[in-house]
């Protein structure tokens, strides 16, 4: 017997691993746009309503949604007025990233970045201080509003690169926190 043609589902299907802080979804997209999430085929549709809003439709669920932010493979999606942050990875990049995290584990340092350009009003932590996740670190004034910058990790404040009155640009490293978990 000579097989001349055999359909294949996996060959050119692209796999993604889409992760948030809490959740992980495996998404497969075939060239024909057959979509599987966690191995289940989903019949989804994205449509623009007559009201001008964009909707995602799955069965009898229909939700308004928009992409609030995308930067490289990091997304903030707003759906039903609720926002979700996701990072889209390929299986290779996902595994490599895990490797990388292991390598960099020794110096697990969290850089506290300025989320927007502004002026430092007040420091709420000092070098050497122990901080818990979600503790406020400093107050940054931007666009006439005072914003509390909080830490995402627990640890020790290793270094403070700024002082009150400094102007900072977006993504400047304000403080370095050594993770002690």
């Amino acid at each position: 017997m000579n097989i001349l043609f055999k359909s294949s589902d996996s060959a050119s299907t692209i796999k993604y691993i889409t992760i948030s802080d809490k959740s992980k979804f495996e998404v497969n997209i075939s060239p024909e746009n057959i979509i599987k999430v966690n191995k289940k085929v989903l019949n989804v549709q994205i449509e623009e309503g007559t009201d001008g809003f964009t909707y995602i439709v799955l069965g009898n669920l229909k939700y308004p949604m928009e992409i609030l932010e995308r930067s490289q493979n990091k997304y903030t999606i707003l759906i039903n007025g609720v926002s979700y942050k996701f990072t889209v990875e390929t299986p290779i990049s996902f595994n490599r990233k895990k490797h990388l995290e292991k390598i960099l584990d020794g110096s697990k340092k969290e850089d506290v970045l300025a989320p927007m350009p502004g002026k430092i009003i007040e420091l709420l932590a000092e070098e050497g201080a122990a901080v818990k996740e979600n503790d406020p670190l400093l107050i940054l004034e931007a666009m006439k509003m005072e914003n509390e910058i909080r830490t995402h990790v627990s640890g020790i404040v290793k270094k403070i690169n700024i002082k009150p009155g400094d102007t900072v640009m977006k993504d400047d490293v304000l403080m370095e926190i050594e993770n002690n978990n």
């Binding site: 998404v27 979509i35 999430v37 989804v44 799955l58 039903n80 979700y84 889209v88």
Partner: peptide
């Protein structure tokens, strides 16, 4: 904050589909 059924999954899906479109 109230989450509708399958909301998070659909958000993940949307991000993936958009990324896929861009990447290809």
């Amino acid at each position: 904050c109230y989450h509708e059924p399958e909301e998070e999954m659909l958000a993940a899906l949307l991000a993936t589909v958009d990324y896929h479109a861009e990447a290809t």
